[in-house]
Amino acid sequence: MPRRKPVASRPQRRKDPHRGEGREAFRCAGCRLDVPVVAPGTAHRNHCPHCLTSLHVDDRVPGDRRAGCRGRMAAFSVTVRGDGEWLIIHLCEACGVLSANRIAGDDNALALLRIAIRPLSDSRLPVSALLAL
């Protein structure tokens, strides 16, 4: 006997699109970790400390939220500034834009080191230049 469906007592609540602005945490686009925005050593945390993935929301200035892309940005490379600070270079997987961000104090050291030694793990071309010395 088919059960009679009860009449919906109240309409479904709409999602608040402005939820989370001026918030204290964001969710990582790569591993879904809840990341607090306060980070040791930096005032501009823009990537997940666990998997180093970021989101393409800023245009040129950190925090301006002017990019309409919102694609996932994967950690592409690591570089060193003149004063010895490491920067992660992110590549947007949707539009191909590159951006640089300083690492935070709680970033995953193993993930950072993996990116840093990735050129050396490839035993092709330039490694042979060192052997020829």
């Binding site: 690591v78 570089t79 060193v80 010895g84 600070e85 490491w86 690492i103 050291a109 950072l112 080191l113 840093a116 030694i117 050129p119 050396l120 071309l125 330039p126 490694v127 042979s128 230049a129 060192l130």
Partner: peptide, 18 residues
């Protein structure tokens, strides 16, 4: 220039933050 390429590749490891 492979030496310059190599120098850039190992520069992060020469100045590690940890």
């Amino acid at each position: 220039n492979q030496l310059i390429l190599m120098r850039m590749a190992v520069r992060p490891l020469a100045q590690p933050p940890f």
